[in-house]
Nucleic acid binder design. Structure first.
Length: 427
RNA sequence: GGAGAGAUGGCAGAGUGGUCGAUUGCGGCGGUCUUGAAAACCGUUGACCUUCACGGGUCCGGGGGUUCGAAUCCCUCUCUCUCCGCCA
């Protein structure tokens, strides 16, 4: 939610920054400002009346004490009348507030000025390419075939026991998963992040806090009997820790890292993009989340990008970094960089991380603030990024590092897997 | 799952219908004293809306109600604690 003060103070900036996301907010803003005017006006009138009723109530109390019962009764009647008027205004006010809130909540976050204009993923800007794209032999296989041949992952068992998109990891496949999780967590801890293990189910309030609700409801698994949602990312529980919290300036930046399973319904996905590990309903991810002072958030965004780049370099995977264009960005983000690794056998780029600065958009929704040096409370900035999501990393590791009859584990990971090569079963 | 108790400011903890946004203690901040610190003493100390300001309004877990007037009474939801049951 864009803070109303920003809209009031600087509507032109809001309009132009929303235009980067291909949104014409001119009408919406003037509607919002007029609703806000009505809100103030109505509230002022109501406060006036309440002030009068408060004064009268005190007088009545005094009159009773003095034994002037008739005078008191007369005032009582007067006060009842005032109270009724105040009640009417209260109803009006809550209607106006509801309309204002729903208008505000429909506005996406403003794009940062560095965001390129554009409509789709084709307009994203490649800002960096790192690593060498491996030349594989003719017999190189995509990861789903490797996973079967080396007996690492069973998609069929997943379908049998749960459904498509819920694979079983087995043997060296399972150990590789565990190794990656520990590697990512240790790297984050070394970079100063604080490890958190969050719950995997969240309530409705948390869904609103980070913006999954109301509009992305269909993307989450819902446990109806308890009205809880399975988390689509650890970002949701980890950021919502700070819902309705006022931090001290000295607490910032808050740097948290969490490993979790992630659950996504991925309604509407289909085709070759979802083959194998490319798109799952349940997957593992290590997420980094920071809460920062506004003046530092972009510097912190850079440091998060370097952190993710370092992980991919250590895993010896060729990758590129994209600056997302306005049309490809999420509703809540102000600036997003995507990381893609090259999948050598599929011959395509796979998105493995998305690092974003939300500025005060999430903070405003969930009332996450901090006290600055003058003792004033103001909204903090929130940032998060995947560091990293496992399935496509596994896909790329298997494909890019495949050799004749084995798959090489990158050196940085050997201490975690306990083996240097994935080998064929029964050899 | 059954029975009971409770939810008040950063924390602890008073307050059971009238001047209570709330006694007090701790903590925090500022000051006196001190070479410095501690102790002691004095002062100060919540959030939100509105206003240039003065001021006004809202908030005692959430929501609703009774009343001229609610932290205090009633309804409801959520959460916490104790006991019993079940259980990794």
């Amino acid at each position: 939610m864009i803070p109303i003060q920003i809209i009031r103070e600087n509507p032109e900036e809001v309009i132009s920054r929303l235009a980067i996301k291909n949104i014409d907010a001119t009408d919406a803003l003037s509607q919002i400002i007029s609703l806000d005017d009505q809100r103030k006006e109505t509230q002022r009138k109501m406060d006036d009346l309440l002030s009068q009723t408060n004064t009268l109530a005190k007088e009545i109390g005094n009159l009773y004490k003095l034994g002037k019962r008739e005078d008191a009764d007369a005032l009582k009647e007067q006060n009842t009348q005032l109270k009724e008027n105040a009640k009417m205004l209260e109803v009006q006010l809550s209607e106006i507030q509801e309309a204002l809130q729903s208008a505000l909540i429909q506005l996406p976050n403003m794009a940062h000025l560095s965001v390129p204009k554009g409509k789709s993923a084709n307009d994203n800007q490649v800002v960096r390419e790192c690593g060498e794209i491996p030349l594989l032999s003719e017999s190189a296989q995509p990861h789903w075939d490797l996973a079967t041949r080396f007996d690492l992952i069973s998609f069929d068992l997943g379908s049998k026991v749960t459904g498509a998109g819920f694979p079983f990891y087995k043997g060296q496949g399972a150990r590789l998963q565990r190794a990656l999780i520990n590697f990512f967590l240790d790297e984050a801890i070394a970079a100063g992040y604080h490890e958190i293990q969050p719950p995997l189910l969240i309530n409705e309030d948390s869904g609103y806090g980070t913006g999954q609700l109301p509009d992305k409801e269909g993307q989450m698994y819902h446990v109806g009997i308890d009205n809880l949602y399975l988390i689509p990312t650890a970002e949701v529980p980890v950021t919502n820790i700070y819902r309705n919290v006022i931090l001290n300036k000295s607490d910032l930046p808050v740097k948290n890292v969490a490993y979790s399973n992630c659950f996504r319904r991925e309604a509407g996905s289909y085709g070759k993009d979802v083959r194998g590990l490319n798109r799952l309903h349940q997957f593992d991810k290590v997420e980094i989340v920071q809460i920062a002072e506004p003046s530092q958030s972009y510097q912190i965004l850079d440091s998060m990008i370097e952190h993710v780049a370092r992980l991919l370099t250590k895993l010896e995977l060729p990758f590129r970094i994209l600056r997302l264009c306005g049309g490809d960005m999420s509703f809540t983000s102000a600036l997003t960089f995507d990381f893609e690794v090259w999948s050598a056998a599929q011959k395509r780029w796979l998105e493995v991380s998305s690092v974003s600065n939300f500025e005060s958009f999430q903070a405003n929704r969930m009332k996450l603030r901090f006290k600055d040096e003058t003792g004033k409370t103001q909204l903090a900035h929130t940032l998060n990024g995947s560091a990293l999501a496992l399935p496509r990393i596994v896909a790329a590791l298997l494909e890019n590092h495949q050799e004749e009859n084995r798959i090489r584990i990158p050196a940085a990971l050997v201490g975690y897997t306990g083996f240097e090569y994935i080998t064929l079963p029964n050899t």
